[in-house]
């Protein structure tokens, strides 16, 4: 199995631990990924707030660069672990097909720069790859230290499931839950799986953004979870790094671990914690495991 990989800006910065753990875990499973050469920013939500056509242009260059890895195949899969990148690349590839006017302008713009795009890419999330290409049974075979007794609140956030639910149920996604169960963990049932964490509002209108993140962390805690598992660098940052602020504002005392699902996979596979970027978390999930507590 071979894929192209679109890390996006966050996985090289705030979400470094996501990249480190993803690469370690995929390496362990033998899933090969080639980082797209000279990829650019996806534009996230900000580009669309400024200029819709330039937002399509940004993503189109990435899709065109990915297509260079086609090598005679029918299509090329792009793995986009960040939720914003996943949505934006997905949206662009769809719009280029659905709206010929946009498609034509993008085509012309690309050829001015000596690039081309034939629409032969599939934008996919690592969770999709793990469940549907690789398979949970094979993942189980790699588990060395089952996450026994660890109660995980699987938090999907918004943009992996909405508006395009390509690989899971939109109202009640289960792919991460199934994965965590395969690792030996318990998953909690909770209603905020896909509720918004506030996105960039935690940095802009903090009174609102931090409140939204607090609602999620608190609910996970109330329902008895030991750790929140995330699949998005912004969700992870919001839920984890603002806990001091939440504790101050809402008279709480939060030290609640929020880890990437790939870090929890790595723990179960027995991968060295340094290789999983655990040292980059404010509250390492180790403290939440039954033996860590004792």
């Amino acid at each position: 199995m071979s894929y192209t990989y679109f890390p996006g800006c966050s996985l090289k910065g705030l979400g470094k631990a996501y990249e480190e753990s993803l690469l370690s875990v995929f390496d362990k499973l033998g899933i090969e990924m080639t980082e797209i050469e000279d990829w650019n920013c996806c534009g996230a939500t900000s580009y669309n707030s400024m200029d819709e056509m330039k937002a399509f242009g940004l993503s189109a260059r990435n899709l065109a660069l990915a297509e260079k890895y086609l090598q005679g195949a029918e299509s090329v899969d792009i793995i986009a672990p960040c939720a914003a990148c996943y949505l934006v690349l997905n949206k662009t590839s769809r719009y280029l097909k659905e709206y010929p006017e946009i498609g034509k302008q993008v085509h012309d713009a690309l050829s001015e720069a000596g690039l081309s795009y034939a629409g032969l890419t599939n934008v996919r999330h690592p969770l999709d790859i793990l469940q549907n290409d690789f398979g949970l049974d094979k993942i189980k075979a790699h588990v060395k230290q089952p996450l026994k007794g660890l109660k995980v609140a699987c938090y999907y956030g918004c943009q992996i499931v909405r508006p395009y639910s390509t690989f899971d149920n939109q109202a009640n996604p289960m792919v991460m839950d199934n994965l965590m169960k395969a690792l030996g963990a318990e998953v909690i049932d909770w209603p905020l799986k896909t509720r918004c964490c506030g996105g960039s509002l935690t940095g802009t209108v903090q009174e609102v953004g931090v409140r939204l993140s607090y609602i999620i962390v608190k609910e996970a805690q109330k329902r008895g979870a030991d750790v929140v598992a995330t699949a998005c660098p912004l969700c992870q940052f919001n839920l984890e790094c603002y806990q001091d602020k939440m504790s101050g504002w809402y008279k709480d005392n939060l030290k609640f671990p929020v880890a990437y699902f790939t870090q929890l996979m790595g723990m179960a596979f027995g991968i060295d914690h340094k290789k999983l970027g655990m040292h980059r978390l404010f509250v390492p999930p180790k403290a939440a495991t039954p033996e860590g507590r004792i």
Partner: peptide, 12 residues
């Protein structure tokens, strides 16, 4: 290369 693409998308 990127700027060429973006300039060509310079339209509302």
């Amino acid at each position: 290369e990127l700027q060429t693409v973006l300039n060509a998308m310079d339209k509302e």
